[in-house]
Structure formats: C-alpha cells, structure tokens
Computed example of a mutant assay.
Amino acid sequence: MTATVIYGKDLAAELRNEMKEEVTRLKENGITPGLTVILIGEDPASLSYVRGKQKASEKVGMESDLIELPESTSQAELLSLISELNNDDKVNGILVQLPLPDHIEEQEIIEAIEPSKDVDGFHPVSVGRLMTGQDTFFPCTPYGIMVMLEKAKIDVAGKHVVVIGRSNLVGKPVGQLLLNENATVTYCHSKTRELVYHTKQADIVIVAAGKAGLITDEHIKEEAVVIDVGVNRVDGKLTGDVDFDSVKQKASYITPVPKGVGPMTITMLLYNTIKAAKKTHGLI
C-alpha cells in the first residue's frame, strides 16, 4: 500500500481562486480587504515569508502593505505603529512577522493588536475563544491542517490524534481545534517518554517538532494519517519531520514537505483577512 499524498499546494490554489472571486464581489460593494504586514530587521527567511504573503494577497485582489523597519526599532515605536493601524479603517488585518529582535517583548506586541484585526490568531482573546469553542480567527497553520483533513474527507470525530509539538503557534492550537471537532487528542513533546508507544496508537499523527526525520514507519500503525508540519533544511534541501519515503508505504494519507501544509498557512491568512473585512462591514 502507498499513501495518498495530500498536496496543500493544489488545495491552496483552488481556495485562492474562490477567494479572488469573493474579493471581486466585495469590491463591487465598495469593500477591499486590506492586510498590513510589519517586518523588523532583515532576516532572509522572514523577508521571504512576508514577500510570499504580500504576493498572495495581491493575487486575490486584496490591499497589501508591507512596512519594513530597521532592527533598531524600539518597542515603543512598534507599539505606536500598531496603535495607528488599529485605528485605520482601511486595515482589516495586522500581522507582525515573528520572530522579533531580542530587545522587543513579543507577547506585548501580540497583545497590542486589536483582536478584530488579529488575523494570525495569536491574541489571548483569540486563543480564549478557540479554547471555548467560539468563532474567532484561528491560527493559520493549524486552520490549514483542519481544512486539508476536511477536504480529504478524513473525519476526525472519535479518532485518536497524536500531536507531536506543543508550541503556541501550531501544536497547542491544532490539538484544540481537533478536540473541538470531537477527536481524542494526545500531546507529545521533547520530554515524552516512549514516543513510539503513543504514536503507534494514533489514527492521525500531526508532527510539528522541528526535527528532521523524527518520525519513521516504525512510529505509526498501518493506514494512519500523517500530517508533517516540520520545515528543516538538510544538505540545502527542505525536508519535514517525517521520513516521507518510508512512512508513505504504511500510511493511508500523508503530506509532503515542501508543497504540503506550508501553502495552506498563507491561504488561511488570506481567509482570515477577508473574514475580518466582512465582520467590519457587518456582513457576518
């Protein structure tokens, strides 16, 4: 048996075409969704990410603004800028590219963004609503994973899901989203003993540990669903946390790296920004 490969790249293209049509309809009614991304410093990876976000935003017809600030930007200056954007009606979504320089307190910046413009889904208000099953902006990577499972017609209700990783960006929120959909969720992490014991019991394994080749075919049971969120560079090539070649021989579904979960992250950012614009104008 060879697993069905879930290509997030293809699904992302399909969803973005739908979003482009929706943005066109909104524009006809005088509404143009707008996203502003703030980038501090000149980290090449961060710059690549934000350029990708900007390009994707423009392709679906949204307003896209990238504000690039020097590494020396102070906490007070950044907070002042966020305050201005919070009060700018043309800006529906605000995204501060992480990580931030060491002299800037990341959590304070996240909490400064108006929750109605928190399209990253990181504000404590958004997190609280997620935890309590309310409508909110879901973090983009976890949300993308949920959409991929749904589109592949993988019903998570009653399934045992093992999430490897407990970050605030992916591990914790994806587990909560799955719990909200009636999955049984086990979290594993760097301190977990006998990882294989846990993963072998899983119907669905979501790997977001940041360790190349962590999961092999020995870690999963026959016909498990394996979602690889890891992005690692090995010998100049991008690779995930899953040994794709061995695991695909045993799994029922698997996502590749690249072209798997990654493209869905930006797609759900666009979705959240359009949703924010519609909320602002009372359309939802």
Rank of each mutant, 00 (worst) to 15 (best):
L81S: 10
L81H: 08
L81Y: 08
I82M: 10
S83M: 03
S83L: 06
S83E: 11
S83W: 10
E84L: 15
E84N: 07
E84G: 03
L85R: 01
N86M: 07
N86Y: 14
N86C: 05
N86Q: 06
N87V: 07
N87A: 09
N87H: 09
N87T: 12
N87F: 09
N87E: 12
N87L: 14
N87Q: 12
D88M: 08
D88I: 11
D89M: 09
D89S: 07
D89F: 12
D89C: 13
D89T: 06
K90I: 10
K90V: 12
K90F: 07
V91G: 09
V91H: 02
V91T: 14
N92Y: 13
N92I: 14
G93H: 13
G93E: 00
G93Y: 12
G93L: 10
G93S: 13
G93Q: 05
I94K: 00
I94N: 01
I94H: 00
I94Y: 09
L95A: 08
L95M: 13
L95Y: 04
L95V: 13
V96I: 10
V96R: 01
V96K: 11
V96S: 05
Q97A: 11
Q97M: 15
Q97R: 02
Q97H: 03
L98M: 07
L98P: 07
L98H: 15
L98N: 02
P99T: 05
P99Q: 15
P99A: 13
L100Q: 01
L100F: 09
L100Y: 03
P101H: 07
P101L: 07
P101T: 03
P101V: 10
P101G: 12
P101Y: 10
D102K: 08
D102M: 13
D102A: 09
D102S: 14
H103I: 03
H103G: 02
H103R: 00
H103T: 14
I104A: 00
I104H: 00
E105D: 08
E105A: 10
E106S: 01
E106N: 01
E106I: 00
Q107K: 01
Q107R: 02
Q107W: 11
Q107S: 14
Q107H: 07
E108I: 14
E108L: 08
I109K: 01
I109Q: 04
I109N: 11
I110E: 00
I110C: 03
E111N: 05
E111Q: 11
E111W: 05
A112M: 15
A112G: 02
I113T: 13
I113C: 03
I113R: 01
I113V: 08
I113G: 02
E114F: 02
E114S: 05
E114C: 05
P115Q: 05
P115Y: 11
P115L: 05
P115R: 01
S116N: 10
S116A: 11
S116L: 15
S116D: 09
S116R: 10
S116H: 09
K117M: 10
K117E: 04
K117V: 08
K117T: 07
D118G: 14
D118H: 13
V119L: 15
V119I: 04
V119G: 05
D120L: 08
G121D: 05
G121R: 15
G121Q: 04
F122T: 06
F122D: 02
F122A: 10
F122Y: 09
H123L: 08
H123E: 15
P124W: 15
P124N: 03
P124V: 12
P124K: 06
P124G: 03
P124L: 15
V125T: 05
V125N: 04
V125Y: 12
V125M: 06
V125E: 06
